[in-house]
Write a protein that binds this DNA or RNA. Structure first.
Lengths: 141, 141
DNA sequence: TATTAGATTAGATATAGTCTAAAGTAACCA
DNA sequence: TGGTTACTTTAGACTATATCTAATCTAATA
């Protein structure tokens, strides 16, 4: 996605396109591997040493609020983020903790009785097991 | 679940039943609301002020490794835990962040082509939206 | 241009989790 | 029983992650 498109999606969501916010968004689109907040900060701050931690975190929050970015549900202590692009599920490796994307498919919704008064917005799947690298190590040949 | 049963499940998993480990396990069984690690520590430490933070965290790790406790995948910075009992999915409220249990049902597995060399152990669902309390506040009446 | 709302900054602070070294406890075996 | 060993706990230091604060800057707009 090019600069103009990013700018447009920010402004379309009511966010000013500041250089710092742009940098966060661009990094997320270039790195669809669910980077952690510290990784994002480190990368953005390396490119622009004046961009502070607070700004990076503020922008991540703003982008999530605006619906342009998703915070990924994983265990582990650093928050992980994902620019919303193609829908996908997640595979979390039991052993190394890596989070990988899995093809999207629709999931049967819960019975409305079990849903109660809750308002359902979306359903995502988390698969667990061993990623291909760890599976290879575990059962070599 | 009574004391003997907890003791038995610990020892059946190769863990000594120490007073501190027992306290963590008993707290999790009594509070199936996915408490955070700090909440667990605070409760256990209140009952037994000598039980240290390191011990609580070590025991949580041991219980997860032994398969008696599950670490719940949520965004947010404090780890949340859940004694393994009845299988269930999770509903996370967009607004207040609370994690609630949802009835279990089996989920279609991913195509083996998309799975590749990964080894799948389990699949769990995360529903997102508004919990009943927040839904009421949002759309009163 | 003046006003105002929104953003950014550095650094302090808060919160969560891990590590260390010493001491304590339980299992086991001669 | 006593000795050996592996496991466990403890307090507190330390690290990592995230948020807050107050001052300053920037951009939109009247």
């Amino acid at each position: 996605m090019d600069a103009a498109a990013i700018k447009q999606s920010l402004e379309g969501s009511g966010l000013r396109c500041t250089p710092q916010r742009y940098a966060v968004m661009a990094f997320l689109m270039d790195h669809p591997r669910h980077p952690t907040a510290p990784e994002i900060f480190e990368a953005v701050n390396r490119a622009d040493p004046l961009c502070s931690r607070a700004t990076t975190y503020n922008n991540l929050r703003d982008l999530v609020r605006a619906g342009l970015v998703r915070e990924v549900a994983v265990e582990g202590r650093a928050a992980r983020f994902d620019a919303k692009g193609v829908r996908h599920h997640h595979f979390i490796c039991d052993r190394c903790g890596n989070v990988e994307d899995m093809d999207w498919y629709d999931v049967p919704k819960p019975a409305s009785r079990s849903l109660g008064k809750r308002v359902l917005r979306e359903s995502e799947l988390i698969f667990r097991g061993l990623c291909s690298k760890c599976a290879r190590r575990r059962a070599p040949r």
